[in-house]
Design a protein around this nucleic acid. Structure first.
Length: 305
DNA sequence: AAGACGAAAGTGGTTGA
DNA sequence: TCAACAACTTTCGTCTT
């Protein structure tokens, strides 16, 4: 899609501290700026040992995001084995080499290998999504638990990884839709598949995931649209009212936030077109109109002052 | 002419028999 | 497994500014 990776106002330093998380947030796009360094890490995945060896020399993704000491020893082990195996395959009986390799892989390295791929991917996603490091760590932790439960088996690593990342974002109240996250995933993971995996994980891991709160999306879209804090605050109050009147349960949080912003901007004289708002929030104008109509009809706007 | 509006038909996902 | 259902989208003709 077109609008994602760059954040034009970051250069203009329009940033502010996020009260509770202590992170610096870009005012324009609402993305977290500290804690993440752009990592143009390797985009590859090696499928043969030759390929792996060649590419690893350029700097492996494995060593960057080690979460604890345990992991680093596991990875060291993995490196040694991969390399040793390759030599044997060239110089020795092919079958015997494969068998040895296979055995080791199954008993000791399967998980480490999986983890290293996942963590490399995770780090890249965290960087391009500009999410705080703490999210990276929490996701890594959860992913490891999922892996230990054997739930990755038979599934695409990226799917499971993005699903765990989504869970962490939801739990933290970080406004990222599944769609957004999917767009940053590798091509091996469709939004649909990730959603399916997400539901499975919620079930299997017994995780309570809170419903997304439209209010969380207000600063994000408000910033995208260059709307003032006044407008955003009013939009939040509108949403609170709407929630009290059960106007938004079961509805998409993005559409609700978009409509509240549209209405609020109109009231405050910072009017945006439905088209502008719909593009910022990734919903259609029709959805904005529908939410907007419900708000207008059911909320006493004088109470919102 | 651009923006706002809403009807109608289609899509993908959930739910419950 | 199928049908009903809700939310949302796409498309498009019609008002309003």
């Amino acid at each position: 899609m077109e609008e994602k990776p760059k954040c034009p106002s970051c250069e203009s330093k329009k940033t502010e501290k996020d009260h509770e998380k202590g992170e610096v947030v870009c005012k324009k796009c609402g993305l977290v700026l500290t804690d993440t360094v752009i990592d143009e890490g390797p985009e590859w995945r090696a499928f043969t040992s030759e390929e792996r060896e060649k590419k690893q020399r350029t700097g492996s993704a494995l060593n960057h995001s080690r979460i604890d000491k345990n992991l680093s020893t596991e990875i060291d082990q993995f490196n040694r084995d991969a390399r040793g195996t390759k030599l044997k395959m060239e110089t020795r009986n092919r079958i015997g080499g494969l068998r040895r390799w296979h055995k080791k892989l199954i008993y000791t390295d399967s998980k480490a290998r999986n983890l290293s791929v996942a963590l490399g991917q995770l780090k890249r996603m965290i960087s391009s999504l500009r999410l705080p490091r703490s999210v990276q760590e929490e996701t890594a932790k959860l992913y490891r638990e999922v892996l230990d439960k054997g739930l990755v088996k038979g599934r695409v690593i990226e799917e499971v990884l993005v699903a765990t990342l989504y869970i962490v974002c939801r739990k933290r109240g970080i406004p990222r839709t599944l769609k957004e996250l999917s767009e940053y995933a590798g091509s091996g993971a469709s939004e649909k598949a990730i959603g399916r995996t997400y539901r499975m994980l919620k079930e299997e891991m017994n995780i309570d995931v809170p419903l997304p709160d439209p209010v969380e999306f207000v600063p994000k879209y408000g910033a995208k649209l260059d709307l003032s804090g006044t407008v955003q605050e009013r939009a939040k109050r509108i949403l609170e009212k709407a929630r009290e009147q059960k106007l938004i349960s079961g509805k998409g949080p993005t559409g609700a936030a978009a409509a509240a912003l549209y209405l609020s901007a109109k009231i405050e004289g910072e009017k945006k077109t439905q088209k502008e708002v719909s593009e910022a929030a990734n919903v259609t104008e029709v959805t904005i109109r529908n939410r907007y109509r419900e708000l207008k009809e059911n909320i006493d706007l004088d109470e919102i002052e």
